[in-house]
Amino acid sequence: MSAPRKPLHKGLLAGGLVVGLGIGLVAGMAGAWVLSFSLIEKAKQEVRAGWTFVPVVVANRDVAPGEVLKLNELAQRSIPEQLATSSLVRPDSSAYVVGQALTVPVQQGEPLRWAFFATATEELKPEETRLAEECQRAFDRVPNRPMPDQSAAKIRERILGGGAP
């Protein structure tokens, strides 16, 4: 007969248990990451199903009114075809806006519209100009209309001061 076996050392058993739990935890986390990544990608594909994207011209920096656009200040971004109207500047027409002055402020990444440029508004008839000015004056007289805040300090002052929006 053979000699009786020596019992395993308790420290060795506990160490193996810790290593096994660690490996299981890492493998479980990796599996959860792969599962969540694949679910997110599937959701993206479902959302984008049926949408075709078209390129439009955007500003690659904030541009103030009156500034003249240069070619290096333009970029291209794709938007859903359903949202791309003829009022947006397309990449094949970008040469027409280079060297043109903007009439409105444009934020970085905002699609450029033909109406943002002075040449589009120079051709307004005098009665159309007067009508636009009268509409703006009427809008300015609307009581309790929301006014855009100019800075974080004004927002904080309005909130803490209890002022009306």
Rank of each mutant, 00 (worst) to 15 (best):
D62M: 03
L131M: 14
L83G: 04
A120N: 14
G20S: 07
G31H: 07
L102N: 04
I155E: 06
G50F: 04
R130A: 15
E133N: 13
G24N: 11
G24W: 01
P7V: 11
V57F: 01
G109I: 02
E123Q: 12
I40D: 13
A75E: 05
A132S: 15
G20K: 05
G24A: 08
E157I: 10
L71I: 09
A59V: 00
P148R: 03
I155T: 06
P165S: 12
S93Y: 07
R48H: 07
G20R: 08
A132R: 15
V98H: 00
P143R: 03
N144I: 04
S87Y: 14
V142S: 02
N72V: 05
P55C: 00
D92N: 09
V19E: 07
L12R: 04
V142G: 01
T85I: 00
A118E: 07
K70E: 12
H9A: 12
Q107M: 08
R77P: 06
S94I: 11
L13Q: 08
V106T: 00
S2C: 06
G11D: 13
E67H: 13
E127T: 01
I159N: 08
S38H: 14
L83A: 03
I23F: 10
R48L: 14
R48E: 14
A32T: 10
R158E: 00
A14D: 08
S94G: 08
D149R: 15
R156Y: 08
G22P: 00
T129S: 12
G15C: 12
V54N: 11
F37N: 15
K125L: 10
A153G: 14
V63Q: 00
V56D: 01
H9K: 12
E123K: 13
E127G: 07
V68R: 01
L160A: 11
M147R: 15
W114M: 03
D149G: 13
Q45S: 14
K6V: 10
A152P: 05
G163E: 12
Q45N: 10
P91M: 02
A14L: 13
S93I: 03
E41T: 06
R5M: 08
T121M: 01
L131H: 09
W114A: 02
E41G: 12
G99K: 06
N144A: 05
L124D: 08
G24M: 00
